[in-house]
Amino acid sequence: MTEIAVSVLVVVGALFTFIGSLGLARLKDFYTRLHGPTKATTLGVGALLVASVIHFSSGEDMPSLHELLVTLFLFITAPVSALMLAKAALHLRVRSAASLLSGTDDDADAGEQSG
C-alpha cells in the first residue's frame, strides 16, 4: 500500500519538476519563464519529499519527518527568489512580451524590507 503511494508520488513529483524545466526552456520571454520554476518545480520537489517521508516512516516506530523541513524551506524561499529575480529583470529592462506598466523601473532600494 505504501509502496504504491510512494511510487505515484515519486512519478508525479518528477513529472512536475520536468514540466517546470520544460517551461524554463520553452517559453518566450523572461517573465513567463519565471512561472515554471517557481510553481511547478517547487510543488514537484515537495511531492518527492512527501514520498520520502512516507518511504522512511513506513515500518519504523518513529516517523521520519525531517524532509518536511526542506519542503517548508523551499515553499518559503521560492517566491522570495522569484520576486528578487523579477525585480532585477525590471531594473535591467529585460524584454517582455507584455507591456510594462509605468513606474516599474525605479530605484532598486525601494521596497527592500518586503521579502
Binding site: Y31, T38, F75
Partner: peptide, 26 residues
C-alpha cells in the same frame, strides 16, 4: 500576500511600489 500571489494560479508578484501602496503582479 506577495508570497501567496507568487505561489498561486498563474500570477507572480514582481515588485512593490516605493510608497508601498501597490504591488505589481505578472
Amino acid at each position: 500576500l506577495a508570497n501567496t500571489i507568487s505561489l498561486t494560479p498563474g500570477t507572480l508578484s514582481a515588485q512593490l511600489s516605493p510608497d508601498r501602496r501597490s504591488l505589481i503582479v505578472h
